Simulated assay, not measured.
Amino acid sequence: MESITTIFTPDTILRWHRKLVAQKWDYSERRKKAGRRPISREVTDLIVRFAKENRSWGYHRIQGALANVGHEVSDSTVANVLKAHGLEPAPLRKKRTPWKEFLKAHWDQLAAVDFTSVEVWAPRGLITFYLLFVIQPKTRRAYFAGCTTAPNDAWMQQIGRNLIDDEDGFLKDSRLLIMDRDTKFSAAFRNTVGHGGVHSLRLPPKTPNLNAYIERLMRSIKEECLDRMIFFGEDALQNAVCEYLKHYHAERNHQGLDNRLIADPEEPPPDGLTRCCERLGGILKHYYRAAA
């Protein structure tokens, strides 16, 4: 006994005893876990979906919609899920139109405009040319409005008048023109297109993602054409842009249009050789079947 007392103190032995007694009467394994059942992933996804697709729906409306599809939850559960996903209550949510919804609502009358620049060799060295393009996001049809070394108010006003011309203006059927805050899109230009019934929608600063369709056009023409050539004079530049747009509309498949062409292609003949058509010395190519 003396040897044991030198190893363990009475307090240690008592602590062990209390622990064994507590373990004997511990029925926590048999008890049901307290608290609410966790929300299933399916219900969470439905709450978020209903809120995003119906911006005017409040907690009670979403709760009712869930009951209609067999999910009984409280309105406080709906509120907690929306809060966790950063979604505001209906009074605030319905006042803020998502950009995607805005574009969809104006799809048939929407156009976008933007500049890109190219360096061109001239007798006095490299000169910067500014190229102006307009696009209809719904159809992906693009228009080369012009190029200049000095996009001042006078030039921009003339471009505006060309765009809203009643007979062949590219914007004659549009009512909304998206543009960034580039100073070249001056008040004079905006007023000019406004006279043709086209409202100018200026985007917040540094938001190219809000003008994605024209930005994608710029990327395509740069990567597939302009960045692969050296231009000597304005005529060479304009010719390259015009050739690219012919290719873009009638020969180039567009992933945003289910990999189709913008222009309606002719039905290929049932047989015949597959031939290659080249533009700009082979930089642009497309393939077609020639009649036998």
Rank of each mutant, 00 (worst) to 15 (best):
Q238K: 15
S186L: 05
G281L: 06
G256M: 11
H249V: 04
P38I: 04
H106Y: 07
R93A: 12
S3H: 08
N211D: 10
I283F: 06
I127M: 09
I178R: 01
K246M: 12
T148D: 02
R279P: 00
N152A: 04
M1H: 12
L87H: 07
E88N: 07
H195D: 15
H199Q: 13
A145E: 02
D75K: 14
D227Q: 07
D258Q: 14
F50R: 06
Y143K: 04
R216H: 10
R15M: 14
R15F: 15
E42T: 14
D235G: 09
V241W: 00
D45H: 13
A236V: 12
E251P: 01
F170C: 00
L103S: 08
G272W: 05
E243V: 04
A105F: 06
P205K: 13
T192R: 00
G194Q: 02
E223C: 09
E101G: 04
D168L: 05
V134F: 11
I47Y: 00
D180C: 02
G233N: 10
F231R: 05
F232K: 11
P205E: 08
D168V: 05
D227T: 02
L257T: 12
G35I: 12
H254S: 07
Y287D: 03
G58L: 07
R252A: 05
N191G: 15
L237S: 09
G125Q: 08
L210P: 01
M229L: 14
Q157F: 04
V81H: 00
E234I: 13
G125P: 05
K100L: 12
T207G: 08
R252Y: 08
L132A: 02
P89T: 12
